[in-house]
Amino acid sequence: MGIKKATRKKVSQMRTAKRRRRRELAKLPLDTKYKIVSHLQKIVEEIHIIGKSSRKH
């Protein structure tokens, strides 16, 4: 049983949109990008904290 043609088309469109968004992000000014990196670092730290506390229970 194959995937419906419409589903394939939708997945392809989603991938194209994702790639376009990535390329748009790539064009941001350097200081904005580094601000985003800082935010990402904080999010990763929070994930570690949540993971650590849930292991204790």
Partner: peptide, 14 residues
């Protein structure tokens, strides 16, 4: 990695 960020979308690096 920080130099890469200058050319592509931002990603986590320390």
């Amino acid at each position: 990695a920080m130099a890469c960020v200058a050319y592509i979308e931002p990603f986590v690096t320390y």
